[in-house]
């Protein structure tokens, strides 16, 4: 479903992705973790073309990302993306946020898109917030709207870029619960997160990245309990200490 083949990326002189080779199967949930600045966000932002790759090949849903022949706008409709900072449209209500792309991109009739939107918002526990504006919602609620917004496009792949990092601690679990529910519906998912509980529960694999390169890959059990490399042990000791 997602395949990196020798992908490299530079920001000017900075080599942010180093020869990444990684493949994600359909319906697989992969968690990506690593220290800040390791390139994990850049890695998943490449998948829907928010960042461009400089070298190598990246195939998503059978299409070559960055290839001139690939219609990225079309490909993006198949990929949901959840941002760390939610990025809800502040001038639109929760329901309008969710229904916008289905109406304008998928050309689904307004009423139908809105009823699908209501259903999804109810599913993420926001049945009473259809008409609320983002500024009236808590961080956790905003992030759940953002997840519903992505799901409403019925994507084949869901990408999460540190979805709980901007949240107050008491709101993290409400967002993780929604993500677990999405994973359990056999969605192909790539999630950048340090939430180990989530990783243990739904991830098939954990990918550890440091300084732009994949250092270690393994099942959550292997990775968290028996990390093989010195760098992953050092990283885990830091995030586990608290």
């Amino acid at each position: 479903m997602i395949e990196f083949r020798g992908v490299n990326k530079w920001f000017g002189p900075l080599h942010v992705l180093k020869d990444i080779t990684l493949s994600v199967e359909p319906r697989e949930v992969v968690v990506v973790c690593g220290p800040s600045g390791s390139g994990k966000s850049t890695l998943i932002r490449c998948i829907n073309g928010l960042e461009t790759i400089n070298d190598g090949d990246l195939v998503v849903d059978g299409q070559h990302v960055g290839d001139r022949a690939t219609n990225m706008t079309q490909l993006r409709t198949e990929i949901g993306f959840v941002f760390q900072q939610f990025n809800l449209y502040p001038h639109k209500t929760a329901l309008e946020n969710v229904a916008l792309a289905p109406i304008h991109v998928r050309k689904i009739p307004r009423a139908e898109a809105k009823s699908a939107g209501r259903e999804l918002l109810a599913k993420v526990g926001l049945a009473d917030k259809f008409d609320a504006y983002p500024a009236e919602l808590s961080g956790g609620q905003q992030q759940r709207v953002a997840i519903a917004r992505s799901l409403c496009m019925r994507p084949k792949i869901m990408l999460f870029d540190e979805p709980t990092s901007a949240l107050d601690p008491e709101m993290i679990s409400e967002v993780l619960d929604v993500m677990v529910a999405v994973a359990e519906e056999s969605m192909t998912m790539m999630v950048v997160t340090h939430e180990m509980g989530f990783a243990r529960k739904v991830a098939k694999r954990v990918v550890f990245i440091d300084a732009g390169a994949i250092v270690e890959t393994g099942t959550p059990e292997e990775f968290f309990s028996h990390p093989r490399t010195e760098r992953s042990r050092a990283f885990l000791s830091k995030i586990l200490r608290h």
């Binding site: 073309g49 079309q74 993006r76 409709t77 993306f81 941002f83 900072q85 990025n87 304008h104 991109v105």
Partner: peptide, 24 residues
């Protein structure tokens, strides 16, 4: 982030302008 959210949703250039960027 607003433009990125609109991009990620698959909105076209004109739709991003019309629906997301210009109103803000």
């Amino acid at each position: 982030g607003q433009v990125e959210a609109a991009l990620a949703s698959g909105l076209s250039r004109w739709q991003r302008m019309r629906q997301v960027v210009l109103p803000q």
